[in-house]
Design a binder for these strands. Structure first.
Length: 338
DNA sequence: TGTGACTAGGTCTTTACGTCA
DNA sequence: GATGACGTAAAGACCTAGTCA
């Protein structure tokens, strides 16, 4: 569920800042929606070989946290590409490059009952199957143990086997980060195939790519929340100011009414506001004229010459003006303006 | 301060299994 | 007894939120 909040004119533009935006507020089960979207993307990736297009339902306000220039040329592998990836970034000097066996393990074991079976996974699992048969096959229990030991994502201590110390934090290189950013720009969630392809390209473990995307999503959301909060604060201030102004106007009108009760005894005259142009129209018995927008010059022309004098914003625009064009027969006790 | 990695807890899908008509 | 539909629990994957280092 989204709330479209707009300030300004009817086009949803923020009048004061000239920004054209509509604030999309996630209300309610945003978590679930994102999860579902992620799965939709995953499904899309399955269907289209990973070339899922960006979502069309993104909130209109986008927080740009991404590099402005495209540093790297990367496209998600399609089914016929994923075995022949153009590795545009190679030779990173940080982080242990996963061995071929690990990549195979990751590929094979990252396939869950409900996840996509990529050609990577198909190939690798086939080879795994062959290995299993040569070793006499694996029982379910062994397979489970193997699974837990092999896939970093579900062997939480996967880093421990490298150095013996838990939580060895690795720093990604700038190239790796830029590459991941570019990928995130296209898809903020990964399906297993994409994850694997990225990991392979960046010489990272799939688990690292997965964690990076998780963190990226979380921190993007956090920043977006801050931006939304700031914007809402500004909206609140604007509305408060508007409210204050309208209260003042109301007080003025009330004062006017009490100061000049005479007008209450005039022949029946109905003032109505034209809904389209917000001009005060009189349906007085004697006059068929449209009083027209009260301009500074006191003109009662029924044909406004510009949008500005045609559409006063509100009653305030009418009554804040000099009373020279006061639309009543007898002006109030006020010196007529020159 | 930024960020990589982890944990806890949640949802969803798939699979296996039992029950029943 | 065989079979298909249905319900349910378990397992696994993946997510977010929070936290640590």
């Amino acid at each position: 569920m989204e709330l479209g909040l707009s300030l300004g004119d009817s086009q949803g533009r923020l009048a004061d800042a000239g920004r054209e935006l509509v604030l999309g507020l996630g209300v309610g089960s945003g978590k679930r929606e994102e999860q579902i979207r992620g799965r939709e993307i995953e499904a899309e990736g399955r269907n289209s070989g990973g070339d899922a297009a960006p979502r069309s339902g993104d909130p209109p306000v986008h927080l740009s946290l991404l590099p402005t220039s495209s540093l790297l040329n990367f496209s998600w592998p399609s089914d016929n590409q994923n075995r022949n990836l153009e590795v545009s970034v190679r030779g990173f000097d940080v982080n242990r490059a996963p061995s071929a066996e690990e990549m195979e393990e990751d590929a094979a074991l990252s396939s869950s009952p409900n996840s996509a079976v990529s050609s990577f996974q198909m190939d690798f699992s086939a080879r795994r199957g062959a290995a299993a048969t040569t070793s006499g096959g694996t029982s379910a229990g062994n397979a489970e143990a193997e699974r837990k030991g092999a896939d970093g994502s579900h062997s939480r201590a996967s880093d421990e086997d490298e150095s013996g110390s838990a939580r060895k934090k690795l720093r990604l290189s700038k190239e790796q980060s830029a590459f991941l950013e570019e990928s995130f720009k296209e898809h903020n969630t990964l399906n297993p195939k994409q994850k694997l392809a990225l990991a392979k390209q960046l010489n990272l473990r799939p688990r690292q790519v997965e964690v990076w995307f998780q963190n990226r999503r979380a921190r993007t959301k956090l920043k977006q929340t801050e931006v939304d909060c700031e914007y809402l604060k500004r909206c609140c201030e604007t509305l408060t100011e508007e409210n204050r102004r309208l209260q003042k106007e109301l007080a003025e009108l009330r004062a006017l009414k009490t100061a000049h009760p005479f007008y209450m005894h005039l022949p029946a005259t109905t003032l109505s506001m034209c809904p389209s142009c917000e001009r005060v129209a009189s349906t007085a018995t004697s006059s068929s004229s449209v009083v027209g927008a009260v301009s500074n010059t006191g003109s009662t022309s029924a044909a406004p010459t510009s949008a500005s004098d045609h559409r006063p914003n509100s009653f305030a625009a009418l009554f804040n003006r000099p009373r020279s064009g006061y639309p009543f027969a007898v002006p109030p006790q006020q010196p007529p303006s020159s």
